[in-house]
Design a protein around this nucleic acid. Structure first.
Length: 433
RNA sequence: GCGGUUGUAGCUCAGCUGGUAGAGCACUGGAUUGUGAUUCCGGGUGUCGCGGGUUCGAGCCCCGUCAAUCGCCCCA
């Protein structure tokens, strides 16, 4: 029989990697809370319409990358079926949830963050999986540039606390409001059409499907042409230009470095005005963007709500972890603090009692229940990375005293065989380093 | 959807222009009785991804297929 295997592009994750994952998620959650965002969890499955309307029917994501299927309808009701899909991103779903629960009333002001899996049926490669994980936040209810800045500052803080701010850079651009974006797109099409013969095959296709994409083509010829292409700034209204200037000024006030990149575009339809990307320099293969986002003032209305300005971002957990590994970030291991080694049946029994008490206080303790020899248990304790060990046998049972061994230095010292005394040893170890 | 590369023990890999498979690591037992990392000795493991073909004979050659991986497209 063939070995069963995970679905293509979907990974099994183990502790060796997950300690880094937890670190990323923990830092992200703490930072979001520090910035005033509250958590939101929405279903992984949404009606397909959420993304068709929210993300845009013409986008590749919706067009060919969603895991879509029919929900089967209610039992006995063949006609009442609904098309559902695994969420390919979370912004549209979050907006749907906010609307459904009446959070986006007039003058609503809400900030939410999320952490969770997303699904896209793409060809897997480094930093790109079919099930991947994003952290992200959305701020609703203000068109003030200060919120654009706050969102970017939040990303910056997360990266900074992960030790990645110096190996990432922030790229910033504005797409203007919808009318301006349309006008700009038309100008781009006109420009590139005039030079169509010099465009790459891919970009000739983009000319029809997604002209903005030509700007960040990887083809050298395309890039040369793009250098002389019309710039979004030239199409901005005074209001949009002022907004962009204010965003730049805000970042500067916070001493957050950024580069204006007139070629930066976003793949999703809903972006307006501010768009940004944090790109990494190491370990990411061809997928260098670790976090990206922008303003989407029209999305809430598109999904059936009142016009509500909003801005947010999403970051890729896999990509952040890849970067952490690339820069040699220390694994946030969770090695046992204490290994209790039973030398005989009586000793083992006491070890199990002590472990029970210590674990109830959150101390990480390992006990070998297999009845192996002291030597074998010590070897395992060593491999586990345990900081201390105590051997418990008949002698210790009699005296109520044991000897704690510091596994790193080999030093031993006497300790009473009680939960309190052992815990004190562990605490001392924490305090010492 | 399209390209490139790869597929040999749990892991990392070797395998000499085809002659019936190896190393390191890991795991495990022991080196005077209850104390680990170094050292020494011992131990097990493979349908050589799968299916065909060529050949006296294939892990090595050919075809197909599956999978992984990197990249394109696209995206976090």
């Amino acid at each position: 029989m063939d070995q069963l295997r995970a679905v293509k592009g979907m990974d099994d994750l183990f502790e060796s990697d997950l300690s880094l994952w937890r670190h990323v998620e923990l830092v992200a959650r703490e930072t979001f809370l520090a910035y005033g965002f509250g958590e939101i969890r929405t279903p992984i499955l949404e009606e397909t319409a959420v993304f068709v309307r929210g993300v845009g029917e013409g986008t590749d994501i919706v067009h060919k990358e969603m895991f879509t299927f029919d929900d089967g309808g209610r039992p006995g009701d063949k006609d009442g079926t609904t098309s559902v899909c695994l969420r390919p991103e979370n912004t549209a779903g979050v907006v749907r949830a906010m609307l459904e629960h009446g959070k986006l009333f007039a003058d609503a002001y809400e900030q939410v963050f999320y952490v969770g899996p997303m699904f896209r049926r793409e060809q897997p490669q480094a930093g790109r999986r079919r099930q991947f994980h994003q952290i992200g936040c959305e701020a609703f209810g203000t068109s003030e540039p200060g919120m654009d800045v706050a969102v970017m500052a939040c990303v910056h803080t997360i990266l900074d606390r992960l030790g990645l701010s110096s190996s990432t850079k922030l790229l910033l651009n504005t797409l203007g409001d919808p009318a301006e974006r349309r006008g700009y797109t038309d100008a781009l099409v006109a420009y590139f059409s005039a030079h169509e013969a010099r465009l790459s095959d891919d970009s000739r296709r983009r000319l029809k499907e997604n002209p903005l994409r030509i700007l960040d083509s990887k083809d050298a010829g395309d890039r040369a042409l793009a250098m002389a292409a019309p710039r979004p700034v030239d199409f901005l209204s005074d209001a949009a230009r002022a907004h962009f200037d204010a965003v730049c000024a805000g970042l500067t006030r916070l001493s957050i470095p950024f580069s204006r990149d007139p070629f930066l575009v976003r793949g999703l339809d809903y972006y307006t005005r501010t768009v940004f990307e944090f790109v990494g320099e190491a370990g990411l293969g061809a997928q260098s963007t670790v976090a990206a986002g922008g303003r989407y003032d029209g999305l809430v209305e598109t999904l059936g709500g009142r016009p509500t300005p909003a801005v947010g971002f999403a970051g890729g957990v896999e990509r952040l972890v890849l970067m952490l590994k690339a820069v040699g970030a220390p694994a946030h291991g969770v090695a046992p603090e204490l290994a209790l080694v039973g030398a005989d049946d009586g000793g083992r029994a006491l070890c199990e009692q002590l472990a029970f008490g210590l674990r109830r206080q959150g101390v990480r303790v390992v006990v070998d229940v297999r009845g192996r020899g002291v030597k074998a248990q010590m070897k395992s304790a060593d491999k586990s990375g345990a900081r201390h060990s105590v051997v418990v046998g008949s002698a210790e049972l009699g005296s109520g005293q044991g000897r704690v061994k510091n596994m790193a230095t080999g030093d031993v010292s006497d300790v009473a065989l009680s939960v309190e005394a052992l815990r004190a040893v562990v605490r001392a170890a924490h305090a010492g380093g």
